[in-house]
Design a binder for these strands. Structure first.
Lengths: 225, 225
DNA sequence: ATTATTTTGTGATTTGCGTCACATTGTTTA
DNA sequence: TAAACAATGTGACGCAAATCACAAAATAAT
């Protein structure tokens, strides 16, 4: 499928600075695909030949650790996906999988490269984004390794609430097993902590729907053990 | 201090592609400083106004985690330092500290920015480097959180041997407490594992000097528990 | 040289949490 | 509407590794 990128309502803020010819190039050289929950968008181990732009939906970035899968983070549209894995290595070093229905644009690396070269501002924006991601990775890793389960679970819930759904009530798009991979624990521990939070009146669970009742407590747990 | 960057023997490979005017800009707008082991090169929490190029020596990248310092990694010259923290945030999100004597060039962000804008290849190289770093971060984090101490210690030793000193005999530039922060354990565990490796004939310790005697075993430990 | 301070080695004890082992519920699919 | 499967809740148990608590080296400071 082909479409006019300049008029695309899902454009990234970075793309606002693109020149006319770049838009034409983009329009002519991309593919829009729809994904359902669970569908693989980028697969670790495959050749990486496309930059991916997530127009709508949610996706998880995850990779095979030495013993089990690790979910690096959950991202929401609009965002580029797979820049590191496309430019950093010929072979994808991580996977991206839809966790809700999603629409994705595939852009040829060469085309993306050209656009980078011809648009300073865009290129700068991308550099800044990459830098920010790396900083975030550092913090994430430090938290994950140093905090214990309750703290990390609190972080995850707060992130869903504040960064992804912008609401204190939301439906977790992950199973407890996936949450475990995100928080670096076992499935059982996720279950235990979740019911514990519920009993303590910090959250309220109705199936996959979660309401954060006492955000203050949750933040305290995130900070301390 | 000022010097001619074009003739600088410590130039990065990326810099080989710079244009004449960029070299002049660099030469006129940088500062070379010498650091001793333990000196702070970049300090978390301070304003970040310079890109740093490590000409010679070793440095550790580290940041304050929720409970204690975490060493992200140890890097050796020549390499840029603090790109993420300079472009990603006005305030440094991590620290860089010399772990051996080191020479460092400080380059004004604005100047570096100009150079990026005027040299496509250089800019592309930087993007690629950033991408690779992020991929590495992902793997590092997955390993750290999933492997147990022996595995992570083995990794650390292998990295010093293969990536930094290019020799099976080397002098660790870190105390055991620092090693603990790098490997995410306690100081005591580092000591125990190290003596254990020695007893098992995998390494030989003479003070701070370490010789890897049985690299195969070490690699096995790195892979399995 | 002698004291002070920082590093390292090693036991004993405690504990967070992973694993195992089920029961229970919810969700497909036939 | 079963039957089959996947996702959850919960207890019991074990263990890796943190913490505590020192002693012994090794470095630095006076």
């Amino acid at each position: 499928m082909e479409s006019n990128c300049k008029e695309c309502p899902f454009n990234s803020k970075a793309a606002a600075t693109l020149c006319e010819t770049s838009f034409e190039q983009l329009s002519a050289n991309h593919l829009v695909l729809k994904f359902k929950r669970g569908d693989s968008i980028i697969k670790q181990g495959m050749y990486s030949t496309n930059v991916v732009f997530l127009r709508t939906g949610l996706a998880k970035i995850h990779l095979a650790g030495p013993y089990h899968e690790q979910i690096v983070r959950v991202v929401k549209a609009p965002t580029y996906l797979g820049l590191p894995t496309t430019f950093g290595d010929k072979i994808n070093q991580y996977s991206v999988t839809a966790v809700s229905d999603a629409e994705v644009c595939f852009i040829d690396v060469q085309v993306f490269q050209n656009i980078l070269n011809e648009n300073r501002e865009f290129s700068n924006d991308i550099i800044i984004e990459l830098c920010q991601n790396e900083l975030e990775s550092f913090h994430r890793c430090a938290n994950r390794t140093q905090k214990q389960i309750r703290g990390n679970m609190a972080d995850a819930l707060l992130e869903f609430s504040d960064k992804i759904f912008m609401s204190d009530t939301f439906t977790i798009p992950l199973s407890q097993a996936e949450l475990a991979n995100l928080v670096d624990t076992s499935r059982e521990s996720v279950s235990r902590v979740l019911t514990e939070f519920d009993k303590d009146g910090i959250i309220e669970i109705k199936g996959k729907q979660i309401e954060i009742v006492n955000k203050k407590s949750l933040k305290l747990i995130s900070q301390n053990g």
